[in-house]
């Protein structure tokens, strides 16, 4: 199983410029683990001390907010497209 993960451009500071990865993570906590192993230092900005995604991070699965799909309990399906983007982030710089 593989999912595509798109990272909003602001995160590229922590991803060495990468804006898209493929992951085999079965769910959100596993995806955060995968991201941390590839991009050390990124995950602490995505996840709070309580293990929940930070309030100003939006996560979409195939264009649906993951919170409507069960959040951390949602099991990714093959070919899911996951978008991680800071709320109201923008700018083309």
């Amino acid at each position: 199983m593989a999912i595509t993960v798109k990272l909003g451009s602001p995160f590229r500071r922590h991803t060495g410029g990468a804006d898209k990865i493929t992951s085999a993570a079965p769910d959100l906590p596993a995806l955060f683990g995968d991201l941390e192993s590839r991009f050390p230092g990124l995950t602490k900005h995505l996840v709070g001390d309580n293990g929940e995604p930070r309030p100003f991070l939006n996560i979409y699965v195939n264009e649906e907010d993951i919170r409507f799909l069960g959040g951390k309990n949602y099991k990714f399906a093959d070919d899911d497209e996951v978008l991680l983007i800071p709320a109201v982030a923008g700018g083309s710089n």
């Binding site: 909003g8 451009s9 939006n58 979409y60 264009e63 907010d65 978008l83 983007i85 109201v88 982030a89 923008g90 700018g91 083309s92």
Partner: peptide
């Protein structure tokens, strides 16, 4: 609206536009 806003967030990263409530928020 939430879908519109997500789309605009994505567009704002591709184009040099002044989105008043996104990059100019």
């Amino acid at each position: 609206y939430d879908a519109v806003n997500r789309l605009c967030t994505q567009i704002s990263q591709e184009r040099r536009w002044a989105f008043v409530n996104v990059n100019f928020r």
